[in-house]
Amino acid sequence: MPIVRTIWVQTFPDERTRDGCFEWMSGRFDRWNAWGDIAYRASAVALTQHLFSLLLFDMVEERNKAGGERPATTGKADEASASVLSIEYREQ
């Protein structure tokens, strides 16, 4: 019987930011098991650092493809409306 437990949670300032992160992660669905292993075996902090480095790399790549333009900022965050994204680890 599979057991599910939440091993990583990230809050976001708004739904747009959360949905953007989820969209980015959905494009890398084949890596989710490896990411779950990082969080389960190392720590949630290790997964956050790993994902952060991947996101930064992708941002630099996109900027280079676009001719060096900087991405637009979203403005100030409203902490009262924070959205959550989580990864669960399934033991089989």
Rank of each mutant, 00 (worst) to 15 (best):
G27W: 00
T17K: 14
A77R: 04
T11M: 08
C21N: 15
A72R: 12
V84Q: 07
R18Q: 11
Y40P: 07
A72D: 05
D78S: 03
E62V: 04
G68C: 01
P2M: 04
D58E: 09
E15Q: 13
T48Q: 14
D14P: 09
H50L: 03
L47Y: 07
M59R: 15
E91K: 13
F12H: 09
I87G: 11
R63F: 00
L47W: 04
C21M: 10
G75N: 06
D30N: 07
T48L: 03
R28E: 02
F57Y: 13
E69M: 05
T74C: 06
E15A: 02
E15L: 03
G20Q: 04
R18W: 01
S83G: 00
E61G: 08
G68T: 01
A44Q: 12
Y40W: 12
G36C: 06
G36A: 08
I87Q: 12
L56I: 09
K76C: 05
G20M: 03
W24N: 12
S86F: 13
I3L: 12
V60P: 14
N64I: 03
N64E: 11
D30A: 12
W32E: 08
V4P: 15
A44I: 01
M1Y: 14
G68I: 00
W35Q: 09
A39W: 03
M59Y: 11
F29I: 13
D19P: 09
W8C: 00
K76P: 10
A42D: 14
F52L: 15
R41K: 08
R41C: 02
L54T: 02
N64H: 07
R16L: 06
A77D: 08
F29S: 12
S86R: 14
R63Q: 09
A80K: 12
C21Q: 14
S43F: 06
S26D: 05
T17Q: 12
A80S: 09
D14R: 10
P13H: 10
L51N: 09
W8K: 13
T48M: 02
E69K: 13
G68A: 03
L56H: 15
T48I: 05
Q49G: 12
L85I: 02
E23P: 06
A39F: 08
L51F: 01
R5N: 04
T48H: 14
R90T: 11
E88C: 02
C21W: 09
A46G: 03
G68Q: 01
P13K: 09
F12R: 07
M25T: 05
E23I: 01
A42V: 13
A34F: 03
G67C: 01
G68P: 11
V84Y: 06
E91D: 01
A66V: 04
P71F: 01
S83Q: 11
I87Y: 12
S86G: 07
V9T: 15
N33H: 15
D30L: 07
A34Y: 03
S81G: 00
W35P: 07
D58P: 04
V9G: 11
R90P: 12
A46C: 00
V84A: 04
E91V: 00
L56A: 12
T17H: 10
P2R: 09
M25H: 05
L47K: 10
L51S: 02
V4W: 15
I87E: 07
R63Y: 00
T73R: 07
F22S: 05
W35C: 03
